[in-house]
Write a protein that binds this DNA or RNA. Sequence first.
DNA 1: CTTTGCATTAACAGAATTGTTAAACAACTT
DNA 2: AAGTTGTTTAACAATTCTGTTAATGCAAAG
Lengths: 215, 215
Amino acid sequence: MLNSKNMENKEKQNKEQQILTAAEQEFLAKGYDGARTTSIAKAAGVTHAMLHYYFRTKEQLFERIVDSKFSLMAQSMISAFGNPNHSIVERIRGGIGLHFDFIADNPQLPLFVINEIISRPERYDILYSRMRGIVDSVYANLQRDIDLAAERGEIERIDARMLFISIMSLNIFTFIAYPFMEPIMGELMADREAFLEARKAENIATIMCRIKAKE
Amino acid sequence: MLNSKNMENKEKQNKEQQILTAAEQEFLAKGYDGARTTSIAKAAGVTHAMLHYYFRTKEQLFERIVDSKFSLMAQSMISAFGNPNHSIVERIRGGIGLHFDFIADNPQLPLFVINEIISRPERYDILYSRMRGIVDSVYANLQRDIDLAAERGEIERIDARMLFISIMSLNIFTFIAYPFMEPIMGELMADREAFLEARKAENIATIMCRIKAKE
DNA sequence: CTTTGCATTAACAGAATTGTTAAACAACTT
DNA sequence: AAGTTGTTTAACAATTCTGTTAATGCAAAG
């Protein structure tokens, strides 16, 4: 009896999960307005009534996706602050690499999050207030390390928030603008893997230069 | 009679223009899928039948907007290559500034263009082939100047395309991610004008560092 | 003054899309 | 076997949105 209940739950989780997976694809690729519940259901291999049975409305299904994606995005941003136990230069270099790799694994994520925040800013007020505390403390910690290293003459003194924006810019734009840049970049972007490796190195080099760290 | 014909044309152009202006706002803010022809007509102060009378379909109206916006985007990108008559350092510094100011005047432009290209890549094949020639030659010209200056020891040798991507990243991301960054950046972004000035300076400093130019 | 041609409106039509419901079904319990 | 519970389906309902059409208005030209 436990067995059969489990089976049932697994089956249910399967369908629910299939819908969630299909919804994730559709919403990430087309956004809320462009997504169609019927094509999500079709991609998941269920009738569209099932989608409503499990998730009630398109809105609620979307919220499930959006919440998980926003968490992922926050997580990736935290990773960009690097490991506080390393030296400041290694910390920043490592942070850039971690963040770049994270975005490379989730290339649709930033644009999705940005578009959603722009079209419905209200929803994120709560999320922001939660996130802000974390970011503020990690940032203050980074700023302190930067100031200390600057006093020792190891690096240039710089505003940690500005540095953070620069890192986000360099790492994220590469993926947001990929389809935009690719046709006008010739062979440089022909081999995606090779280009991404070169681009990551370039971003690290650029930020290392900016803080006047020796390579 | 000429007078009255002119009046008529002006009147007509007024309505057409009002629709175009309203459509531009709506499409830039919400994208093709999110935009509603009825709300464009309402914002323009005409019945929605008039919108169809002048532009036939939503698609055709959208194409008018998209074409003009894509031209603007191309123009802004060309401006980032700077003035070839200046020294290489001044050329790049000036190019970044021009491009930044251009985007600051059209902050919704990049995201609109990127979203549109992602959701309908086909349409841009022709536009790309036209643009690619121009970009290629301007890029080759820049690369030559960089190589010459590098041989003279004035700057670091660097791939002009990589440099271009970095400039685009730093300048464009600031505006794409503005609503995303603003809540977690505290006072730094409180005064928009002041922040944009500081950000422009930061982007220039970052690129100048990268090419090892003395400030 | 009537005709001609474009502009304008209101009402309508069609399609797509989201959401609901009632009935059938399947598995398990008693 | 009858009942219970949650799942699934097919058909339907309602709305929203795009696009059309037929009638009306209106100014200029003959």
